[in-house]
Structure formats: structure tokens, C-alpha cells
Simulated scan of single mutants.
Amino acid sequence: MGKMKPTRINTNAPDATCPVHAQSDHPKIPKEKVGVLVANLGTPDNTDYWSMRRYLNEFLSDKRVIDYPRWQWQPILQGIVLSIRPSKSGAAYKSIWNEEANESPLMTITKDQVSAISKTLKVKYGDDVMVDFCMRYGNPSTKSKVANMVAQGCTKILFFPLYPQYAGATVATANDEFFRALMEENWQPASRTVAPYFDEPKYIDALAASIETAYAGAEKKPGILICSYHGLPQRYHRVGGDPYHCQCQKTTRLLKERLGWDDTEIMTTFQSKFGPEAWLQPYTVEEVARQAEAGNKSIAVCAPAFSADCIETLEEINEEIKESFEEAGGEEFLYIPCLNDEPAHIDALVHVIEKNLTGWV
């Protein structure tokens, strides 16, 4: 039988005490708590070649992300991809990097989101609920954060991947990593995972409010709102049964109904295509050009699949996709930021968390 690593209990925690009726030599243990562990995709530690290579190697080696046989994919990844892509991706990250904090915008925003969630829950539950965050790829790792929560006395953990829509390459792989982290613990906490919240009314309301605010501040009303979601290979949907495409379409429909718009004012597209095979369509980068060529010179783009602005929104949408629109003759390009740490978004996330904490607090 393999040797399991012991759970690391923080006996020096301020609230650590000996259990009632315990023997005199029993070590102190922290007060029991419920942990809420928020998870996002991840970020490189820096923009240099080796930081980017480490991050991309971990990300693109995930079978949930690239499901080609290892013997087929790894030689390509370790050879061509990781020789060229780190420099290119590093330059893209550098264009949006938070220089003051020396971190990516995704890291900065995730910290702000978790701080806001923590403050809200603390008012209601005091120190009985502990809130923290982890990244699926890079740092802080899921394993390290689960270990810390257990050490601080969390006997129950709610794991919350911050993806409104479910996909195997996002929610499932985050859950996989959480479950692997639990396998390391000798004193394993009870656990729950949060289901996708793409049709949660408070989330839809927050999205609608952000769009209404952006439109109210625009000099000219955009002719169409393009809801750009991160793409996936079509095969994942058609063969693997991944519900992501359907949930994205429903998000757009619910948003349209909440705004009171008709079908001509909003549409769904997909971005970030990688590799040679067909991905979910229409492709955002092609659709914005088509809109311009068709005479629609003013458009808006939002990204409902992203809970926080990141490389795919700040660089890909607001730079590459915008450039495609303008090169095709487009004139007014309005990017509507992700919900980030907007109060309505935090309210929606806290609502989802509290529903999933039912019976625990």
C-alpha cells in the first residue's frame, strides 16, 4: 500500500484548541470551518520565455484541453509549439501586464473578486467560512490551497470553478485537479463542486446591466452585440457530448430576452481557435470582418464565458479582433469588459455560493 502524505494541521492557529475530553497530550486543532475555494484558469508567473514555457507546457499537456494521443501530441508540443509560442504569448501578455503588481490582469481581478466575496460572507458567517482562490495552471496551485484550507481547519470545502458555462476543458479539468488534491489528504474534507451558473438570473441580470451601461455611454449605438465565447473543437460537442455550445447559446438567448432585444441585435460567436481542425462557429475574428463588409460599421463585443478580463479579452478581443473589424472597414468598436469585481457580479457569485452551502452553514 502506498504511503499517504499526512494532513498538515496548523496547531499554532489562533483558534486551535484541544478537543473536549481529549487526552492531555492531544495536539491542538483549529476550529472547524467551511472553505470556499474559487478556481480560475491560470496565469504565467511572468512574461519571459521560460515562465511562459512552463505555463504553456502545463496547460497544453492537459488531456482535457488537447485530447490527441500523447505519442502524437507531445513531440509536436515539446518541439515546435514550445519553441515558438512562449515568445509570441509572452509578447501578448506583456502588452496587458499589470506592471505595478507584476502580475497578469486575471490574477489582479481574481484577487479583487475573492476579497469582495470574502468580505460579504464574513459579515454573514464570521470566521466560520474561509474564502480563497487557486488556479488550474500555474500559481497558486489547487493542491497548495486545498492543503492550506485543511491545515486551517476546513472540514468541508466548496469548490467553485469560475466558468458560467460547463466545458470539459474548463470546469471538468478544474474539478479533476481538485479531486487529485483531495487524494493527498489523510484527513480528507467533505467536498462539493458548484454546477455551471449560465442560466442563473442574477448572472444574466449582471450581464445585462453591464451592457446597458456600456450602451448608455457610447457615442453611437452599436448595430449589433457580438457575444464572443471561448471556442472548442466541434468534435468535443458532436462526438463527446460536451454541453458547452448549448449553454453558450442559451446564455445569449436569456441575455437577449432580459434586454428586450430582437434577434438582429445580438449573436453568438466563438474565438481562440487553435490547431487545424474545425472549432465551434462562427469564428469571432471572421464575423466582425463580415459585419464591417456588410455595412455594419459600429459593433459591440462582450465575453460572457469569462468571469474576469484576461489575455483572451484584453489582447485577443480588444486588439486582434478589433483590428480585424477595422481592417474590413469597421469604424466604431466597443469592447464591453467582463463583469470582474462589479458589485452586481459579486452579488451573483455570492448567491450561487450560498445556494451551494445550504446545510453547511
Rank of each mutant, 00 (worst) to 15 (best):
C227L: 15
A294W: 00
A278C: 08
I346P: 05
R64P: 02
A181P: 01
R258M: 03
V361P: 12
V123G: 05
Q291Y: 06
M135S: 02
G329E: 07
V239C: 10
M183P: 00
D263I: 05
Y244F: 15
N12W: 11
I9A: 10
I299V: 13
G126E: 01
P69F: 02
S95M: 10
E326R: 10
N98L: 11
E184R: 03
I317Q: 00
A169L: 13
T142Q: 05
P282Q: 09
S115A: 15
K63I: 06
V129C: 07
P161G: 03
A172Q: 11
Y244W: 15
W187R: 08
D62C: 04
L255A: 11
G153K: 00
L339K: 02
A13F: 06
W279E: 06
K145R: 12
T252Q: 14
S324A: 15
C154P: 00
E320T: 05
Q152W: 06
E32C: 12
A289N: 01
E354W: 06
A292L: 05
F306G: 03
T193V: 11
M4L: 15
A348L: 05
F59W: 02
H351S: 14
P27V: 07
I311P: 08
W360Q: 08
Q152L: 06
I317F: 00
A116S: 15
T251R: 09
A216Q: 13
G90F: 13
S95D: 11
K119L: 13
K111S: 03
L162Y: 01
E99G: 13
P86N: 13
E58I: 11
G79S: 15
W187C: 09
V146G: 03
M183F: 04
C310H: 12
G240V: 13
F270R: 04
K122P: 03
M130R: 09
A209H: 07
Y163T: 05
Y166N: 07
K322H: 13
I9T: 11
S115M: 13
N318Q: 12
